[in-house]
């Protein structure tokens, strides 16, 4: 699902509501007639604040995410996949904006969650990285899972099943 809309339309608020971070005033959020709030362990949310501690290395951050979710992954393999080989022991604060974003997005390789909720995932990512992300989204959807993305950058048509355009209302 590709969510579009101008600044202030409520894209981030919608994503935060779906992922259980925002207390909405009315209505329910359900998946297959089950409240999504009961399935949070099956949801991966990567927002503007991605949970990366910049004083730690990429490896340390990944270990902490694994601790939080109880998942298992080969961290060195993921470091290679996100193109940070050789920088894995450098504190994240010394990396470029794009590399920091790659560290944040590495959770996509770690996570086994069925629903990915991603707020502006392409920010600071170069063309090669965007291509890798698109392939990853495609593979996730082809496996019968779900990706909800907001972005100001157009997504390839074959990647989008539903396009939800939010209007700005004052």
């Amino acid at each position: 699902m590709y969510i579009t809309g101008p600044n202030g339309a409520g894209k981030t608020t919608l994503l935060r509501s779906i992922s259980g971070l925002h207390q909405y005033h009315s209505g329910d959020i359900e998946l297959n007639k089950q409240p999504l709030s009961e399935m949070l362990a099956n949801v991966l949310y990567i927002g503007h604040k991605a949970g990366v501690n910049e004083n730690l290395t990429a490896i340390d951050n990944m270990q902490h995410w694994l601790m939080l979710t109880g998942e298992k992954a080969n961290i060195n393999e993921i470091i290679e996949k996100i193109g940070l080989s050789g920088l894995d022991n450098v504190p994240v604060k010394f990396l470029s904006a794009g590399q920091k974003r790659r560290v944040a997005l590495s959770r996509l390789w770690i996570s086994t969650a069925a629903i990915w909720i991603l707020d502006e995932p392409y920010t600071s990512i170069d063309a090669v990285g965007i291509n890798v992300l698109n392939q990853l989204f495609k593979r996730h959807v082809d496996n019968g899972k779900m990706v909800i993305v907001t972005s100001h950058q157009p997504l390839p048509d074959d990647l989008v099943d539903v396009n939800l355009n939010l209007e700005y209302r004052f």
Binding site: G20, V43, Y45, N53, T69
Partner: peptide, 12 residues
């Protein structure tokens, strides 16, 4: 500030 608390609250 870095969003870790958000992850803690939605981790299950």
């Amino acid at each position: 500030d870095n969003g870790w608390l958000e992850l803690v609250f939605i981790s299950g």
